[in-house]
């Protein structure tokens, strides 16, 4: 796992360069997605997550959820065509999961890739992902931090 400016960038995960999210590919056509350490830091402490329904299909760039933090509202974007298989209902009990454990308990949605080769072509991983995020961190003078459990 690479850590840069306090930001974890797990090299085994996949990322989309235009969105601060991670993708864990599981099997041929399923994946779990979540907010990256940079995304949760930028958003700040979450107050609310509204998920789209399980079974719903999203086009590339559409959101699978809306997120509200103390100072910001935004979509959780799925960068490729997908069907939502599951949403993380644990947010109903602990809204700050993405702030405390973004790559683990703080996952957002599990999806089925509707066009796996096209989806994979959009993603970066390993050293390329680390280099991309290091540049993004430098450009934005970000330093990541995690909320303490509440």
């Amino acid at each position: 796992m690479a850590i840069y400016a306090g930001c974890d960038i797990p090299e085994e995960l996949y990322y989309h360069p235009a969105h601060d999210l991670w993708v864990r590919l599981e099997g041929d056509d399923t994946a779990t997605l979540g907010m990256s350490d940079i995304a949760q830091t930028a958003a700040g402490k979450l107050l609310y997550v509204r998920f789209k329904g399980v079974g719903k299909r999203v086009r590339p760039g559409q959101s699978a959820a809306t997120i509200e933090s103390a100072k910001w509202v935004g979509p959780f974007v799925v960068p490729f065509a997908a069907e939502i298989l599951a949403v993380n209902t644990a947010y109903e009990q602990t809204i700050t999961l993405a702030n405390t454990d973004p790559y683990g308990a703080g996952w957002m949605v599990k999806v089925r890739l509707l066009d796996p080769p096209a989806a994979r072509a959009e993603l970066i991983t390993g050293a390329a992902a680390v280099a991309h995020f290091q540049q993004r961190i430098r450009d934005n003078q970000i330093r990541c931090y995690r909320c303490e459990d509440v």
């Binding site: 930028a42 700040g44 910001w72 934005n140 003078q141 970000i142």
Partner: peptide
Amino acid sequence: LPLDLERRF
């Protein structure tokens, strides 16, 4: 705009 919300605001 700055990614960091404090700087953006």
